[in-house]
Structure formats: C-alpha cells, structure tokens
Design a protein around this nucleic acid. Structure first.
Lengths: 342, 342
DNA sequence: TCAATTAGTTTAAACGTTTAAACATTTGAC
DNA sequence: GTCAAATGTTTAAACGTTTAAACTAATTGA
C-alpha cells in the first residue's frame, strides 16, 4: 500500500509548518491566518487529494468516530435491517460502523466486544447474547458508552431501546382470543433473554385476562441449535394431545419460519384448522398461502433512537434512555377464519 | 470514557522502560530478556487487564488489522449471509470488519469507500455498485488491496470472486427447456452489472442451443427503484401476449420475490400454468406452495476465497485471483409438471 | 519613540505504540 | 588482568495528527 498524503507533504511542498496546514484544513484560528496562504494550502490539499488519517487523528483526540455494532445474527432479517438502519443513521453523525455478529453465542459475543473496544470505538450498540452481564459490567466500569437494543437486563441500569415485548405478546394473544381461538400453543426459545421471556409473559397475561388458565402443556421451549427437529416435535405434540391446540403463537421469526415449513407439509389448513401468530415481518411469511398475522417492530424508530442515545452518551450528555416502543399488530389471513364460507 | 491501561502504566508500576514491556508482551527479543522481569510484566499486564491500543499500533505499523466490507444491500439475504461468512473468516486471521451498505447507489458507494480507506483499512472486499470504475481505479492507483465479489468489471484486471453467472443462467434455462417449457420469459434488471448481464446471456445461449430464437418481447428489464409496479406490469405483459410464456426466469432474488407475491394473487398455477426459475435460495421461496427451482451459490466458498485472496494481497503475495465458482441447480416443484396427473 | 497590541507563523509536546541503536553490566577466554 | 562477547535494559525517534504556547514582525497609540 502506498504511503498516503499527509499534512507534512503539504507543508513541505509549500515550505510552511505542519501546524499551519492543520489549522487551515480544520478551519481553526481563521482570524489569524492570512487568506493567501490559507488559499494555497487548500489548493495544494485538493491537488494532492489529501485525506486526513483517521487513525492518527483518533490517537490524538481519543475519538475514532467509529461505533461498534454487535448484532445477534446478521443473517437474520431483524439484525440485517437493524444494521442497515444504524449504519445509515450513524453516517448522519459522520460515524462509521464496525460490526460483529455474535450468533447468540456468549463467548463469541465477549470476544467481539473486546475486539471492538480495542479498536477504540467511541461507543457500542449491542443486542446482547445470553449471560453477557459480566462483559457489560466491564463496559460500565470503563465508562465505555453503549446502548442495548432488542433485549436488556432489567436489573442492570443500562441504556436500552426495545420493543414493549410484554404488551406485544399480550396484544398478539388477545387478538387470537378475541377472534375465537381458545387453545393457544406457544412455541418459544428456552432462554433467559428478557425480550423472549416478556413475550411469553404477555401471552400468559392475555390468557388470564380472558379467564383462561395457563397450561404448561401448551408451552414448548426450543433450545436453539437443533431447531428444526425440536420444532417439528413441538408442533406434533401440540396437535396430537387429547385436546389439541387451535392456534400457535411463535415468539420469534425463526421459530415461525421453521414451524411453517413443517406445517405446510401437514394436512392442516391455516387458519381453519390452525391459526398462527408471530413476531416480525418476513417475506417468507408473506408468501405462505395464509400470510402471517404478526407484531411489526418499528425498526427505523428503534435504530434511530439507539444511535441518538449513543451519540448523547458519547457527548457525555449522560441520560439513561430506557425506551420501550410499541409493536404494531398486523392482522393477516393466518388468524382470520372466514366464517361466511365455513 | 476512562483512559485505558497503556504500556506506560505497566512500565511505571514496575519501574522499567516502556520498550521492555512492549518486547515482553510481543514475545520479542526473548533470548535477551530475563525470565523474572518478563514474568512480572506479564503478571502486571494481566492484573491491570492491559489490552493493546489498536489505533496506536495501527499508526505505528501501518496495519490496522481491519478490512472494509462494502456490500450491495445488507438487508438482502445474499449480502447478509456473505457478511456473516466474511466476518467469521476474517476473524480467523485476527481481522475486524468495518462495513457499509451501498444500497446499489454509486454515490453512496464512493463515499463509503472513502470513509473505509480513511480509516486505514488494510484492504477491502467490495460488491461494486454500477459505475464504480473510477473509484476502483483510485484504489488501484494507491495500491490499496481489494477483492471484488459477486460482480466485477471484465475490462479491469482486478481480483474477483464470483459465480459463473453465464453457466448458471444457461443451466437454469436449459433445465426449463429440457423439462419441456418453450416460451421462457426473462425478468431481469436494467443494469450493466456483469453478473446480471451474464445470467441473461446464459439464458440466450441456452435458447440458441435448443434451436430457439431469442425473442426480445420475452425479456423484461426492471429499473430498480419502483420495482413492485414494474414487475407487476412485466408479468402481465408476459402472460397477456398472443402466445404467452409458459415459464419465467428471474435473474435475481428480489425480482422473484416480488414477482411471486404478484403471481400468487393471479389465477395461475405454478408450475402447471407457469414454471419459475430464479437465483439464490430464500426462505420465502421455500414457503411458497411450489418451492422455487433455483441456482444456489456456494456462499461459504465464495466468502472464504474472497478473504483468502485479500489476505494474500495484504501480505504482498500479489497474485491476480479471478475465480468463478459454479452454481448448483436446485430443482424444486416450481419447474416440474407432474404429468402423471395431468 | 517605544511599549503594547495584533497578526501570522512556528515550536514542541503529546497520544500509545514499535524498533533500531545505544548503553551498561556480567561472563568467559586467554 | 584484559578484552570481547553475551546479556539485560534504556534511549530516542518515528507514525500523523492536534493544540497550547512561544516567537517574530508589523501596526497602533500615546
């Protein structure tokens, strides 16, 4: 790689000091510097195509104008949409995004956080994996600004932007109940991540509101790695039981996706035999013969809020932003029985 | 943000020079340094949780151990899968990924490339937007290592890893022809990007091989922004013409996705009335009642090759890797008429 | 006329590292 | 007992910036 043009090169070419060049190109001390030399410096900089070395600048100013983004799984639509939004938003503040995908793995997440911090990012936006408390405490102890998205640890006083998952779970379950479904199965992850837990609690709450008892047999928890087989089994269990479910609520995108693949192979009609509700939009669920009723997260708003909150932290305007945004219930064919025909 | 622990802190604490600490922690001059002091330095470093400042290191060594990744559209499955693979692969070489999504916009791509370069990335992996030649020439002139993925400029002697798009287009069209389809419509982008162009040429070639003339009326080109409306029109045109098409070949993921959404609203049965072939897997196409026959790109291989090629360039092992990998034809229901029933 | 002010520019130190070269001390050979 | 070599450590400069402080020369005011 060629040596890039530096302030020194411009200074030497014009026979002036590096300082002067720096002042001119940063529009500093403009009341002191002669117009003529300023003009010349600017011309020469343009001519040599000078671009400030952000690494040197970062070392000196202790600001790299870089933020670290740690998503849960970049190949998942939620993460990649978020990444895109955050990158766009960061750009408005002249920030660059360094990224990593933890793949929901605690160790990997820890390692990536370290890497990002050692690259001197000015702050982080993190969708934390399970059991990341220690690592987050380290960030707090070192006063490294960060904002959590999607999930957070209720007992930790951190900045976070997330969906009101409880309300969303409630809303989705309520909708099924109000449409007439009574035996709602829940397929969720076996996890302590608060976003998923809250969705489940919302579901329980909705049942209670409708005078129904929570039935643990209707709740199936999946432990991520062997997802396909487990989901197949969960769905079978729910459909085979003495009084089978009339609907299934999935607490995540990936779950419904795999679930749907299996359901589409069964002699079960959605929504007539089985209604479905889930979280997040997906093109896949749109092309299913009965597009899925789902909770739509306001991704743009969340991304914007997260970047804004982080910028404030970086600027030492320390306020503990802990914002929950509301999900929108998008009702589609998967939960509406057309009784005019039946 | 707190000042981080530096070599100086360790040196001061032990009353030795910074140099010595640096040597020890980098395992240099080990035949010279006394075991006892080395031991102490290592202990103190661990105790203070010293982490080298990559920015300072980068300034000194002119290597930031960072690569820039410029994808076409991170919210698209191809890009995000690629991003994940590349991030994983880069990690093996102790590299961090800085990323940007050009959203297929030349201006934005140019700006992002500048940003990445000014952050002193050691190299770049780029899925170039249309008309990025100038910017790439700049990289070449400044000897900044880069590898193109997905598309490239045939007239520019750059490193690139891509699908053999011509062969893939051919293979897909051949399959339709051999299954008995004769009027194959092509829905593609109006673009000069070579990957898309090659797919189209492959289609033409397959037609020719089968003694069929290319019919320009069967080729519909979409100019990206207003994609939904245009695709709707294209499909209508193809189905309404005097002798309508019996199959449609889409040259990209996004095209078939939108196309499918529209087709699923029509009284047209896939594959009986209309066969479909496309590029890239997608969960969406899997959930459609007739899962789509498609060309599967070996993403893992491509990502691995791209990172490897870049690492070689960075290490000044200059070889012009220009590798085309083969796509796999995955035959699904969307192109197989079950004649046993018909 | 000369001190004080203003204008224009430079000096020098710093950020946290790396690394060639220098230095000081010990060891060993003869 | 001397000197060369080996051992262990430090000095100093550098990477490309930023920025307080210093310097010089010109201008102003009394």
């Amino acid at each position: 790689m060629k040596r890039k043009v530096s302030l020194k090169d411009i200074a030497n070419k014009l026979g002036v000091s590096i300082t002067l060049v720096s002042y001119v190109l940063n529009n500093q001390k403009l009341n002191r510097i002669s117009k003529t030399i300023a003009q010349k410096i600017k011309e020469t900089a343009a001519e040599l195509n000078y671009k400030p070395n952000q690494v040197a600048k970062g070392l000196k100013t202790n600001k790299t104008h870089t933020i670290g983004l740690l998503v849960a799984d970049i190949s998942n639509a939620f993460s990649s949409s978020m990444a895109r939004i955050i990158e766009n938003e960061a750009e408005k503040y002249d920030y660059t995004v360094i990224f990593g995908s933890s793949d929901e793995n605690t160790e990997r997440s820890k390692k990536l956080m370290d890497v990002l911090v050692n690259h001197q990012v000015d702050g982080l936006i993190i969708a934390p994996a399970e059991h990341s408390e220690e690592q987050l405490k380290y960030l707090v102890a070192n006063e490294i600004p960060f904002v959590l998205i999607d999930r957070f640890y209720p007992e930790m006083p951190t900045c976070h932007i997330s969906l009101d998952n409880f309300e969303a779970g409630q809303k989705l379950a309520n909708h099924l109940l109000e449409t007439g479904y009574r035996r709602i199965g829940l397929i969720t992850y076996r996890t302590t991540l608060n976003n998923i837990v809250e969705r489940k609690l919302g579901y329980f709450d909705a049942l209670k509101e409708h005078g129904l008892e929570a039935d643990e047999n209707l709740v199936k928890e999946i432990s991520s790695p062997i997802i396909t087989a487990e989901i197949t089994k969960a769905i079978n269990d729910l459909l085979i039981m003495p009084s089978p479910v009339d609907s299934i609520l999935f607490t995540a995108n990936m779950l419904s996706l795999h679930g749907l693949k299996y359901i589409s192979t069964l002699p079960v009609k959605v929504p007539d035999d089985l209604a479905i509700g889930t979280f997040d939009e997906s093109e896949a669920a749109d092309l299913f013969y009965a597009p899925l009723t789902h909770i739509k997260q306001p991704l743009n708003q969340m991304g914007r809020l997260a970047v804004q909150a982080l910028m404030n932290l970086i600027d030492e305007k320390k306020e503990l932003v802990q914002q929950q945004v509301k999900g929108e219930l998008v009702i589609r064919k998967s939960s509406i029985v057309d009784r005019s025909v039946g």
